[in-house]
């Protein structure tokens, strides 16, 4: 596609007979068309982020320093980052695994077509059902007075809060709530990869005497691996940036990085505005790495989906 897109441009370049001076003016006018977009992006996306990034390397007087970056190593901030990474990792791992299982079951498991259609439709909605309403739904389900909590108590005599030590407002409670948008997102994203597993590969493997396990281990999984890893990274980034759900569930008591930053903006809880910039920089770097890796892996995975 990029070949076709560049063709006319090259044709213009080589086939041009007008003097170079006029060509220059024409080129300038051509660029004018993208000025609004670049201006908007510079002012409301790149500029503000760059401001934070440069601020991360300055002290309050505006002099260059690494002190803020060094201060990221202080105990409470390292703890926040670790908690964030751990929560995102666990929720992405559970999401990727269950999404993959669901994908295999629905796409490859020989279930009727309508099951696939129903899950696809529902996943499209559920993967976008995040934020505050999701928190409310889980409070009504697994909160202290939630339906499932009450049901467990009345039917089995188990109080999941007192007897099992479960609380929705903890690490695993949050991971369980995140799963509600992570699982459908994984399912939606892994579906094209699973569809891309050609029946011929399986037949070829079976003809050569491969067992079911060998087929998965040596053919299907290696082909799927870039997709799975890529989706996992996207889920990770997705969870890492989540703030609203966690805030609605736990207030500000659960110190993940977005919450720390939120508090910092509200009331300078770090007592150093430039340290806030450094935390923001840290977030952008982590999001950047996981998204870049995701895009790289996706490009790799698409080789098999032609």
């Amino acid at each position: 596609m990029s070949f076709n897109a560049t063709m006319p441009y090259e044709a213009v370049q080589t086939g041009h007979t007008t003097p170079p001076k006029k060509n220059l003016v024409k080129l300038d006018l051509k660029w004018l068309g993208v000025v609004p977009f670049f201006l908007f992006a510079a002012m409301f996306l790149i500029g503000p982020v760059l401001y934070l990034i440069t601020g991360a390397f300055q002290n309050t007087d505006g002099d260059f320093t690494f002190a803020n970056i060094a201060a990221l190593g202080s105990d409470n901030i390292v703890a926040s980052f670790l908690l964030s990474i751990k929560l995102s990792f666990v929720s992405a791992f559970i999401g990727a695994l269950s999404g993959l299982l669901l994908g295999c079951a629905v796409i490859l498991g020989g279930l009727p077509k309508w099951v696939r259609h129903a899950f696809m439709t529902f996943s499209g909605v559920a993967s976008n059902f995040a934020g505050v309403p999701l928190a409310f739904a889980f409070i009504a389900t697994l909160g202290r007075l939630g339906l499932v909590t009450i049901l467990m108590r009345d039917l089995f005599g188990i109080n999941i809060y007192n007897d099992l030590g479960f609380t929705l407002f903890s690490f695993f409670g949050l991971a369980l709530a995140y799963l509600y948008f992570q699982l459908p997102l994984m399912f939606l994203m892994i579906t094209p990869a699973l569809d891309g597993l050609k029946a011929e590969w399986r037949e070829a493997a079976e003809t050569l005497g491969a067992t079911r396990r060998q087929y998965w281990q040596l053919v299907a999984l290696p082909v799927l691996m870039p997709s799975i890893l890529g989706c996992f990274l996207l889920l990770f980034a997705n969870a890492f940036g989540t703030l609203a759900t966690i805030y609605a569930l736990t207030g500000s008591s659960f110190d993940v990085v977005p919450i720390v930053l939120f508090q910092q903006i509200r009331g300078n809880v770090l007592y150093n505005p430039n340290l806030g910039y450094a935390v923001a920089l840290g977030m952008v770097i982590i999001m950047g790495i996981s998204n870049t890796l995701y895009l790289t892996l996706r490009a790799r995975a698409e080789r098999w989906q032609k």
């Binding site: 982020v49 401001y51 934070l52 890492f240 703030l243």
Partner: peptide, 16 residues
């Protein structure tokens, strides 16, 4: 550029 907002969490954007 159009993909950049995926890397910049809303909390960072508004901070800026």
């Amino acid at each position: 550029i159009s993909l950049l907002p995926l890397v910049v969490p809303p909390v960072v954007l508004v901070f800026g």
